[in-house]
């Protein structure tokens, strides 16, 4: 298990990460999400042992993470980087040899993974000759070639077509079943919902969300109702407790104050509909999406921090 305990990192007076704690268990995928400049990169670099925290601990299997643990880490950065003038085999060999792998194992693993991704015939080609998607796959292979215990994937699906995305997804699931510790970072919340077992959201260097998707949804409650009706439900705006109404054809997404009792609100909506000769065909109490939670939390924190300043 990988555990961050009260980790803080400062750059001069600026606090990039503040008192951050979370856990990632084997065989679980944890999504590390947050807006740009939230402190994700600094957190990643601390886990990757590229920079050291000012305080707090990063613990792997009960022991503090050390330089020796670098070989157990595989990192796929958001901004992909490989030497374009290098051949696929040389690039993969160099990165794997830096992880302490033997020449023999490297050759075996390179062949295995290139075949798995259908890139074997590109083994001796220069990376600059590969398409963007192919390069992405090579980058992914370089991340997992040395059999790392901790795998950090930052936007692994960007630049991939749907077929390649599915291919990659199934391999990530295989790695999960194999008991790897997988950290996943993305700005696309739908992807995070699809893949992650657990979500940690940070903003302004602090953790603002930590839990399974179910827990998070419950935590944020069902403050959203979708109704389908004939006629213009202009009266909705006047009902006390309704914060926002979004129109999608004859469907209306209604966001309401979390403190309002949902049954009372439904009665009020139906009563007003009848008064206004508006026919409600259906209604659905909807779960908040991770996207909407992200947006509301990011905004809330930004506003709060601006207020603090």
């Amino acid at each position: 298990m990988l555990e961050l305990k009260n980790v803080t990192k400062k750059y001069g007076d600026f606090c990039a990460v503040k008192d951050l704690s979370f856990k990632v268990e084997e065989g679980k995928i944890v999504g590390l999400i947050g807006p740009n400049g939230a402190g994700k990169s600094t957190t990643i670099r601390m886990i990757m042992n590229i920079i050291n925290p000012n305080s707090g601990e990063i613990i792997l299997d009960g022991q503090n993470l050390t330089i020796q643990d670098k070989d157990k880490i595989g990192y796929l950065p958001e901004e992909r980087g490989l030497y374009k003038k290098e051949t696929v085999v040389n690039m993969l060999t160099y990165l794997a040899s830096l992880k302490g792998m033997s020449k023999q194992d490297i050759n075996k693993e390179i062949d295995k993974w290139l075949k798995k991704f259908g890139l074997f015939e590109w083994k001796y080609k220069k990376l600059e000759n590969l398409s963007k998607g192919m390069s992405q796959k090579i980058q992914f292979i370089s991340t997992i070639l040395h059999n790392p215990k901790i795998i950090f994937l930052d936007e692994p699906f960007s630049g991939l077509d749907p077929v390649s995305s599915d291919e990659l997804l199934s391999i990530i699931k295989e790695l999960k079943q194999d008991g790897r510790i997988i950290l996943f970072s993305t700005h696309i919340m739908e992807t995070a919902e699809l893949i992650c077992d657990h979500i940690v959201m940070i903003n302004h260097g602090q953790k603002i969300l930590d839990g399974t998707l179910q827990e998070i949804r419950q935590q944020f409650g069902s403050n959203s109702i979708t109704i389908e009706c004939n006629g213009q439900p202009n009266y909705l705006q006047k009902i006390q407790g309704i914060i926002d109404v979004k129109e999608r054809g004859n469907q209306y997404d209604i966001t309401f104050d979390i403190n309002i009792e949902i049954n009372d609100l439904l009665i009020e909506i139906i009563t007003k509909a009848k008064e206004n000769n508006c026919l409600i065909n259906s209604y659905k109490v909807s779960q908040p999406s991770l996207h909407s939670i992200f947006v509301s939390l990011a905004n809330e924190k930004t506003i709060k921090s601006l207020g603090d300043n």
Partner: peptide, 13 residues
């Protein structure tokens, strides 16, 4: 510029 440095630094300091 090729951003490989982050990958290299997960192996060496």
């Amino acid at each position: 510029s090729s951003k490989i440095v982050d990958i290299l630094l997960t192996s060496v300091n």
